[in-house]
Simulated scan of single mutants.
Amino acid sequence: MGWGCVFVLLALFTLSDAASSTVNQDLTNIFEELWKLDVNRLKAGTDYKISLQGKAGYVAPGSTSAVDHASSPLFSQVDETKLSSITTYAHFMKLLDNYERSTGVAERVTADEVTENNAFLDAILDTSVMKRAHRYLVDKGKSRSNLRQFKNQLHNMWFRLYHRDRNGGEDSSGFEHVFVGETKFGREIMGLHNWVQLYLQEKEKLLDYKGYKAKNKDLPDEDDHVLNVQFSWHGLVKPVASAFIGVSPEFEMAIFTILFLTSTEKTTTAVVNLDQYQLEMVVHRHGRSIGTAYPKLLSSNNRHL
């Protein structure tokens, strides 16, 4: 994703509230079902605690520094024992060190990494969340009912390697971009929209949370499951990053898979109501694979049910 895409992403974050008026009810309905089925979602204040601190300021794309409005980490506590005891999280975390961070450097997938990818897919396919997503896609004619074929479809969307930097080999994948994060030309953070990776990178002191991003009329709080944040990572700054907080990897895989497969547009956006939030869900395709995917928080009614 180059500079043009950066400006596109920034534009998406500055859309007016009028854009939130057209809600995709079909996607809202299935995403709400998946939300209720996500028994592996961690509970804010109990399984993890976050510290929002200050509101981050404007940072130009490509910046290497930003005023720090958060002297402490975003995650003040995470129950790692619980995290590692849940099968899907345990398999998910094994995948996070399987990638070269910089684009332009060809990925080399080892036999062990292939085994880890398969184990993760098997684990999420065994959850109620992904089983419901599969049924939805079959009903829409977007997937086959055969579980092995659906698993291959997921693998090709998320794990098949492709060229993101034309000067390198097969250097990226949907999973790497969305869940792990990558850098381009040493001047741009791309992707990294997963809360577990944010936490683990912060714990290793490789990521420095700079503050939250929000409109003054809709300030976040510590119970929110969707946040817009700013952070630095390996000497670069991500001006705005959006991520679900506390949700399971199978939930994220399910909703972005549905959004990807139910559209043929290069960039798909859909406004949905989910729990207490109104979100703009965004998926950008890279051929037959996912290029990027993330939620953009439009508003929250600050009710925590």
Rank of each mutant, 00 (worst) to 15 (best):
G4C: 02
A11Q: 08
L15P: 00
A18K: 11
S20H: 01
S20G: 15
T22G: 02
L27E: 08
L27F: 12
F31D: 08
W35L: 03
L37C: 08
D38K: 05
R41M: 14
T46E: 13
T46N: 01
Q53K: 04
A56T: 10
P61K: 02
S63V: 11
A66C: 11
A66V: 12
S72A: 13
S84L: 15
T88Q: 15
Y89P: 06
A90I: 00
F92Y: 15
Y99F: 15
S102E: 14
S102D: 14
G104T: 02
V105C: 00
A106Q: 09
A106K: 09
D112N: 07
E113C: 02
E113G: 00
V114I: 15
N118Q: 14
D122R: 03
S128H: 08
V129S: 09
K131M: 09
R135M: 11
R135P: 00
Y136S: 07
K140L: 13
R144E: 14
S145G: 15
S145I: 12
R148T: 12
W158S: 06
N167W: 01
G168F: 11
G168M: 12
S172K: 05
H177L: 04
F179V: 07
F179S: 09
T183M: 05
R187F: 10
G191C: 06
L198Y: 10
Y209T: 01
K210L: 15
P220I: 03
P220Q: 09
D221S: 14
E222R: 04
D224G: 00
N228W: 01
H234K: 12
L236A: 06
V237D: 03
K238M: 07
K238E: 07
K238I: 02
I245R: 04
S248N: 08
T257V: 02
T262Q: 13
S263G: 10
T264M: 06
T267V: 15
V282K: 03
R285C: 05
R285G: 05
G287P: 05
I290T: 11
A293L: 10
P295W: 06
L297Y: 04
L297K: 11
N301K: 11
N302V: 02
